[in-house]
């Protein structure tokens, strides 16, 4: 079953304006690169950050005053998606599925720094609640008054597409009338250092949030398998991805392939897929689950411009993959 994408919103290192960022991506413009340093070792990491001005604007909201960057970005993207859809009705039948890979890592690292240096009695009560994976979802739900299903899904980049699959389930089972899928990540030196230690080296790490408002009615439709597939090796992943795409597309040929490639060895899993190639990760950086929703939004915006089929393959670094089609 496909569902309609009624609205989109994103907060990216290239900005927040839906059309502005999309135009920049099509024109091959990349977000600026800055540096995050491990304060203990001095190791520098290149990152694409969301502009600081964005946070000074969102910090005026009372609920977000003490929250981490990830929640600011998630709330802004979700509100933009609702605005994009002209969704102003009550939110009684609106569900929220939040996806993330790393969660509120900045406050988690800061909270644990106090604990590691001074003992288990010395953690900050202001920081701890924001370390919980579902804190951003809670802020989004509060900002929009969502009282129904609110759930947070954590995984590699496939969390973003698994949230779409779960949203389709909710809509199909009539548990809601509309469902917001929001994914967000924040950049921190410990994440960059962690993935580098593990030898996962994307082009450049980044941060941001993306949101899709899904419903039953609309011309632009999204579909994806109910669950992800697993893979062990790159060739294994390539085979699994081809199978997923064949089942999703049937005999239709995608005219746009929104690749998840970000410069890692995992890019090989999608290298043989058909379609005119767009690689938002090259311009926006690697933001894991948020990058997945960035890909999906690109697919939606392309379909708003012209009818056709966007193919969005998603490859997670923990052995899962999936794909979505976006059609009009």
């Amino acid at each position: 079953m496909s569902v309609a994408v009624q609205g989109c919103g994103w907060v990216t290192p290239l900005g927040r304006d839906l059309q502005g960022v999309w135009t920049a991506l099509k024109n091959g413009i990349s977000a600026p690169v800055s540096e995050l340093k491990n304060p203990f070792t001095g190791t520098p990491h290149a990152v694409r950050r969301v502009d600081e001005q964005f946070f000074s604007d969102t910090a005026r909201q009372p609920r977000l005053r003490r929250s981490s960057a990830i929640s600011h970005m998630a709330v802004a993207a979700a509100m933009d998606a609702c605005r994009d859809a002209d969704h102003t009705a009550g939110n009684d039948r609106l569900a929220l599925l939040f996806a993330t890979t790393n969660g509120g890592v900045i406050y988690t690292r800061r909270f644990f720094a106090d604990v590691a240096e001074r003992g288990a009695h010395s953690g900050s009560p202001l920081l701890f609640p924001e370390t919980v994976y579902n804190a951003p979802a809670s802020h989004v739900a509060a900002a929009l008054g969502i009282a129904g299903t609110v759930s947070t899904m954590v995984n590699d980049a496939t969390a973003g597409i698994d949230a779409v699959a779960a949203a389709i389930e909710l809509l199909e089972s009539d548990a809601c009338d509309r469902c917001l899928v929001v994914a967000a990540e924040e950049a921190d030196w410990i994440i960059c250092d962690g993935y580098a230690t593990w030898n996962y080296r994307p082009v450049i790490f980044s941060e941001g949030a993306g949101a899709l408002l899904l419903g039953r009615d609309g011309d632009v439709r999204i579909d994806c398998p109910p669950t992800c597939r697993t893979y062990r090796t790159i060739p294994d992943g390539r085979r699994a991805m081809k199978d997923v795409v064949a089942r999703l597309c049937g005999d239709r040929t995608p005219d746009l392939l929104i690749s998840p490639a970000s410069g890692t060895r995992f890019d090989g899993i999608v290298s043989e897929l058909p379609g005119h190639l767009l690689q938002p990760g090259q311009a926006l950086g690697e933001a894991f689950a948020a990058s997945t929703v960035f890909q999906l939004i690109c697919g939606v915006l392309a379909r708003r411009e012209t009818p056709g089929l966007s193919l969005v393959p998603v490859v997670g670094l923990h052995g899962q993959l999936s794909a979505a089609t976006i059609t009009r």
Binding site: V132, S151, T152, M153, A166, C228, T230
Partner: peptide, 11 residues
């Protein structure tokens, strides 16, 4: 057991 994993984290 080979199967996809979905992690739910609502505190």
């Amino acid at each position: 057991v080979e199967a996809p994993i979905r992690i739910v984290s609502n505190a």
